[in-house]
């Protein structure tokens, strides 16, 4: 029970950490820090000397590809955690059936 409470508090903490800036931010447009740095460099008159080999056609396609990246990662992570949990459940079931096998 206590374990679940700690988990819930941790999740709540993560959500709050990113929800609070959004609520307090007001008019801010949350530009990416990467692009802010790029602007700083361009302001100094620097011209990039190489272009990306492939650029997503629009910001919609770009965010779709980012979503794809997160989905692939989340899928693999979920698969691994699910397998590990399933293995543990199976071990516990096997342990109950034949307690003599347990050390």
């Amino acid at each position: 029970m206590r374990r679940h409470l700690v988990t819930a508090l941790l999740v709540l903490g993560v959500v709050a950490l990113f929800a609070v800036p959004l609520l307090l931010g007001g008019e801010s447009d949350y530009a990416g820090s990467d692009s802010q740095a790029t602007e700083l460099i361009e302001d100094s008159g620097y011209q990039p000397w190489f272009e990306s080999v492939f650029s997503p056609g629009s910001s919609e396609i770009e965010s779709g590809l980012f979503a794809l990246q997160a989905a692939v990662g989340g899928g693999v992570l979920g698969y691994v955690l699910g397998r590990l949990r399933g293995r543990r459940t199976a071990e516990q079931a096997a342990g109950r059936r034949s307690p003599t096998d347990q050390p």
Binding site: V20, Q69, G73
Partner: peptide, 16 residues
């Protein structure tokens, strides 16, 4: 893979 795909808002009014 997951975490580097997600841009999150921060207190500075920018995201990373």
């Amino acid at each position: 893979f997951v975490l580097s795909a997600i841009k999150l808002p921060s207190v500075t009014g920018s995201s990373s």
